[in-house]
């Protein structure tokens, strides 16, 4: 890490906007360690009260699906419309269903 030309590790930053909500991905930044990632995330992503909690995850630790596999992964769900409540025709007279 003494080689100045090498970028510091990349962290993905997730912010919880307020308690009760999920942490949401907001972007990424470089930091030497986790503590610096949190400190930089605070300066970079919460200058206007955007959050009450920060997660920082090393980008290299994220396992992502490959866009090329999208069909194989998601296609099987496409013809299963019966998984949605709107698939079922219920007469209007029946209430609260």
């Amino acid at each position: 890490m003494t080689d100045e030309r090498r970028d510091w590790p990349l962290y993905e930053i997730f912010i919880r906007a307020k308690s009760g909500l999920d942490h949401k991905h907001v972007g990424s930044l470089h930091a030497t360690d986790a503590r610096m990632a949190i400190e930089h995330a605070r300066d970079l992503y919460t200058r206007r009260l955007e959050g009450v909690s920060i997660w920082a995850v090393r980008s290299s630790d994220i396992v992502a699906s490959d866009p090329a596999d999208a069909d194989a992964l998601f296609e099987p769900a496409r013809d299963k419309v019966y998984r949605h409540p709107t698939f079922y025709d219920i007469p209007d007279e029946v209430k609260t269903l």
């Binding site: 890490m1 003494t2 100045e4 510091w8 030497t32 360690d33 610096m36």
Partner: peptide
């Protein structure tokens, strides 16, 4: 800012 970057990197390496 070079010395700050170098110090931060050295600190992280030592901690690791």
């Amino acid at each position: 800012g070079r010395w700050v970057r170098e110090a931060a990197a050295a600190w992280a390496a030592k901690q690791a």
